[in-house]
Simulated scan of single mutants.
Amino acid sequence: MKHVFVICAYKESPYLEECINSLIRQTKKSNIIIVTSTPNPYIHNMANKYEIDYYVNEGQGGITQDWNFGYKCALEKYHSEYITIAHQDDFYETNYLSTVLKEAEKASHPLIIFGDYYEIRNGCKVYKNRLLKIKRLMLLPLRIKILQKSKWVRRRILSLGSPICCPSVTFTTHNLPDVIFENHYRACEDWEAWEKISKLNGEFIYISRPVMGHRIHEDSETTAAIGDNKRTKEEYEMFCKFWPKMFARLLLKQYSKGQQSNQLNVDKLKKK
């Protein structure tokens, strides 16, 4: 199978079934699997209901551990050329996979293929807010095909923050290491992965139109990490990978303001 969607399920998300249905309805069909380190009847019943292969991570649990476990399952059991790690709370537009594969097949050596996205807040699709505008501005250079191959360009982008939406990313397995994520971060694990991958030869393929919806809610891991200040510490460490410590602190002050966008106040957000 050329592509596998890996749904990483945790506890009993009320959005899991919506995520599953968005993957089933893709215009380009793919295998779908569910992996979890918190097995329970709810997840098991969802897998049975939709006849989805279900794998339990019996090793160490956690975000990166589950992501790596799911990636390994897709790679070893399905020999997948492309893998998308789908977050259980998110929603994928019906043309997500067809668009991703079309762009990947036009590239010479794709590393990751990712797209623009909208946020889902209190059931509303939000296409424009301050954070989304900043991320789109940061990714503007990658709209130019020739720059997608440039290590210098993508590292300069990542030196200012992480504008890549993790659940929108599809990995080209034969161009990447078998282990994508490190296990020591809780909020910046994806940024760290992009930084590592950015050093490799190949292309960061950016689809500049929204192809999926990323849900923002108070029970998400990102929101929890903000609440206990874990994210700020990790962001500082990431900036230090690119900049001297003094400049990293200055960047952190500005970047941390973006954490406010993970709150659920939608009064000033433009909805569509």
Rank of each mutant, 00 (worst) to 15 (best):
W152S: 13
E76N: 15
F181Q: 00
K29V: 11
R249M: 12
A9E: 10
E189V: 02
E221L: 10
K102A: 12
W67L: 11
T27I: 13
P41F: 11
H44C: 12
P167K: 05
S208I: 03
Y185T: 04
I144K: 10
D116L: 08
L158H: 07
E105A: 03
S13P: 06
E234P: 02
L140K: 15
I120Q: 08
E235A: 07
D116W: 04
K199N: 10
E103V: 01
Y50N: 08
M212A: 06
E221H: 11
F181P: 04
K125C: 07
R186T: 05
G61A: 14
W243V: 02
C165E: 01
K49D: 08
T223F: 07
E81W: 00
C165S: 04
E58P: 01
L23H: 12
F114Q: 00
R231M: 09
I226G: 02
W67G: 00
E17N: 14
A193Q: 01
D219W: 04
L264R: 08
L101H: 05
H214G: 01
V6E: 03
I32E: 08
T36C: 07
D90G: 04
K196W: 03
N175R: 01
L264F: 11
K72Y: 05
C19D: 06
V169D: 01
L132D: 09
I113N: 00
S22Y: 13
C124V: 12
I134P: 01
L252W: 05
L160R: 03
N229L: 08
E221M: 08
G62A: 12
I157S: 03
Q60M: 12
C240S: 14
I32F: 13
H44S: 14
C165T: 02
D66K: 10
F247E: 09
R25Y: 14
Y54H: 10
H44N: 14
E58C: 05
K72S: 12
R154Y: 07
T172P: 00
K253D: 01
K199Y: 10
G161T: 05
S256N: 13
I43K: 06
S22V: 12
H184Q: 14
H214D: 07
M46I: 15
L131Q: 03
R186F: 05
E105Y: 08
N201P: 01
H109P: 00
I216N: 01
I20N: 06
N57K: 09
L132H: 11
K271P: 00
P210V: 04
K151P: 03
Y117S: 09
R154T: 04
Y55G: 07
E12C: 13
T170M: 07
D190H: 05
Y236C: 08
E105L: 04
L252K: 12
T232I: 10
I34N: 05
N21V: 12
P41E: 15
V179I: 15
Y15Q: 14
E81K: 12
P14F: 15
Q148M: 07
D89M: 03
F5A: 11
V6P: 04
L147Y: 09
N45L: 11
S198T: 03
P163E: 08
K133P: 00
N122R: 12
A224E: 09
A86Q: 06
S30W: 03
E218G: 06
T36D: 06
T173Y: 01
Y206H: 07
A107D: 00
L16V: 12
T232H: 02
F171I: 01
A47F: 13
C73Q: 14
K268N: 15
Y236N: 10
C73A: 05
N31Q: 14
Y118M: 11
V153Y: 07
L137C: 07
H217W: 12
I52T: 08
H184E: 15
W152L: 13
